[in-house]
Write a protein that binds this DNA or RNA. Structure first.
Length: 586
DNA sequence: AGCTGGATTGGG
DNA sequence: AGAACCCAATCCAGCT
């Protein structure tokens, strides 16, 4: 290896397309690769130089960075103020390509089981735990981080993609997934602007002052006393489901569950205060002061996002409950002084994606430029918006009973192509097959147990119980694959939207010297940045002056995502976009 | 003591 | 009013 890339790198005939990184103790190995896949140069760096060298290469060559796991490289780069435009996350790409039904030969990838694990990043924000974990005898499982392993895996992946039925789509998918990995790290680094004082006021208004450790909040105690009074039992336990159930039975409420809906069936003085108690308890335990202390530091909520954490390709989160931001708490999401939030969500993302996947021009027409459900009503398919919604959701989720199932025949005759697509996905899953999203993410195959259950039902001496169970499992799987193709493709659209938007934000001018900066870290304190992503919603934290331009960029990115996935097919993805100080929904 | 599964409520 | 898909987080009960 040469000690330095020098200037010869930039003068060489072949431009740099990829730079693969790997670790070896305190050394970082970088391998520069040309567009044709040929190795241009190998460079050894000291870990201390990594950020400045990556920054130089990024400015001069704008390569796609290839690394084993995005968080374990990119978090430190961002901390040093280095942003990169593109990467190829080997771990995430491995999982997609390995399972994609479009890949002809995935045997080599399946054999490389060392790439199957999760990210090595800690699930908690506590840096001390990272240090301790390094001292452990058994390091946390994760993909290999050396250069040779990375080069071999990268070669396997490129070869497998080339063997795919549609290499361009699969390339698009791994690029989008990798862009998501960058964005997840960036959003954690920048954080969601969170007004801890406003959150505290909200808690105090609802629950009373913060209680001493071990004590319940005052307002919860008061409501609990009313509930116990109505139960005629001063010692009733309101937090244990079985005990509460027995208490309810004693006062003549024959519920079988203590859920909100079951209780709503009965008229009794205990019901209203009990529901109020549950609401307060939920707020206190899930998003109370303890949550605030743990997850909000210096007015930033920094959750751990897990790209690709859901089988369908949706993101998951680990800790903090980032993907369940309760409506009530949106008031605590607050832009820094001189900054605004651009809050945007897509109306009816999944049915629009379905219309485009199926080339269903009738459904796309109903969706054009307006509320999709209203469009279905206007087309005379059903009488009311609520019916349109329930029928379409039922079609995508696989409802078999109730109003939704009753309305399905009307959808089938109005939108035969869209309905055929989901019905076919259900049939394939029901029969044990694998289905794929628009870009080629495939559903996992049925488990060995699933196959055993089906096989047992086919035996000559199978019982009716065996057969009923096999049918039930088959139908369950059919509903899963039915939904998988739509939810998974919607996740791909959302990734494309996010990646396009990220590029537009990076191209916007940063704030001037006299303007307010945000408390969002070295890369993001002077420019608009993504602050939250929630399946079909984004929140961008922006300098006040550029808020309208960012709102336009969010819309343009949605149009870009539609073009990227569905080309010229006429499908709209209208957004609800608000410029505001908080993230509250209208 | 620590794990798992059920119940519940929150998100899409 | 619920059902039907994908989830996370909490607490409690019951188990090892």
């Amino acid at each position: 290896m040469r000690a330095s890339a020098g200037t010869s790198t930039m003068d060489s005939a072949e431009p740099i397309a990829w730079i693969v990184l790997g670790r070896a103790g305190d050394r970082v190995d970088a391998v520069l690769i040309g567009a044709e896949g040929g190795e241009i140069e190998r460079v050894a760096l000291s870990a201390a130089d990594l950020s400045s060298r990556v920054g130089d290469w990024e400015d001069r060559a704008a390569p796609r960075w290839v690394w084993h796991d995005t968080p374990s490289w990119y978090a430190a780069l961002l901390g040093d103020g280095v942003r990169v435009a593109r990467c190829h996350d080997l771990r995430l790409s491995h999982a997609i390509i390995r399972d994609s039904a479009s890949v002809g030969d995935a045997a080599a990838l399946r054999a490389a089981v060392e790439w199957d694990g999760g990210s090595v990043e800690p699930a908690t924000p506590d840096a001390a735990q990272v240090l301790f974990s390094l001292d452990e005898a058994t390091p946390p499982a994760g993909p290999p981080d050396g250069i040779d392993a990375a080069l071999r895996e990268f070669a396997r992946q490129r070869s497998a993609i080339a063997s795919s039925d549609d290499p361009a789509r699969l390339r698009l998918l791994v690029a989008a997934e990798s862009a998501g990995a960058l964005i997840a790290v960036e959003m954690r680094a920048a954080g969601l602007p969170w007004d801890a004082a406003a959150h505290d006021r909200l808690l105090t208004d609802e629950l009373g002052p913060r209680p001493a450790p071990g004590a319940a909040p005052l307002r919860m105690q008061e409501v609990a006393a009313i509930v116990r009074d109505a139960l005629g039992d001063p010692a009733a336990n309101l937090d244990s489901q079985p005990k509460l159930l027995r208490s309810l039975h004693r006062v003549g409420i024959p519920v079988e569950s203590t859920s909100k809906w079951a209780l709503a069936e009965y008229e009794h003085p205990v019901i209203a205060p009990l529901l109020e108690y549950r609401r307060l308890a939920r707020l206190y335990t899930a998003n109370g002061w303890a949550w605030l202390d743990e997850w909000v530091k210096e007015d930033r909520f920094r959750p751990v996002y897990v790209p690709g954490g859901v089988v369908t390709g949706r993101w998951a989160s680990s800790g903090g409950g980032a993907l369940q931001l309760p409506r009530q708490l949106r008031a605590a999401v607050r832009a820094d002084p001189g900054w605004k939030l651009v809050v945007a969500d897509v109306a009816q993302l999944e049915p629009r994606v379905l219309a485009a996947m199926a080339s269903d021009t009738a459904l796309a027409g109903a969706a054009r430029g307006r509320d999709l459900y209203a469009g279905i009503v206007d087309s005379g398919v059903v009488a009311a918006r609520a019916e349109a919604k329930i029928a379409l959701l039922g079609a995508m989720y696989g409802a078999t009973t109730g109003d939704s199932a009753r309305l399905l025949p009307r959808l089938r005759s109005a939108y035969p192509r869209a309905m055929a697509l989901v019905d076919e996905a259900a049939r394939v899953g029901d029969e044990g097959g694998v289905v794929s999203t628009w870009l080629g993410r495939s559903s996992p195959p049925p488990s060995a147990t699933w196959h055993e259950v089906q096989a047992r039902a086919g035996d000559v001496d199978s019982s009716s119980g065996d057969e009923a169970r096999a049918r039930r499992w088959a139908r369950d799987r059919g509903r899963f694959t039915r939904n998988f193709v739509v939810q998974g493709t919607a996740a791909e659209w959302a990734l494309a939207w996010l990646a396009d938007l990220r590029g537009r934000l990076a191209a916007m001018p940063s704030v001037g010297d006299g303007d307010a900066t945000a408390r969002s870290g070295p890369v993001f304190d002077r420019r608009p940045h993504l602050a939250l992503f929630l399946h079909d919603e984004v929140i961008v934290h922006v300098p006040e002056a550029v808020a309208p331009a960012v709102a336009d960029a969010v819309r343009a990115a949605a149009a870009g995502a539609a073009r990227l996935l569905f080309g010229a097919f006429p499908i709209d993805f209208p957004l609800d976009v608000r410029i505001s100080d908080t993230a509250e929904k209208s």
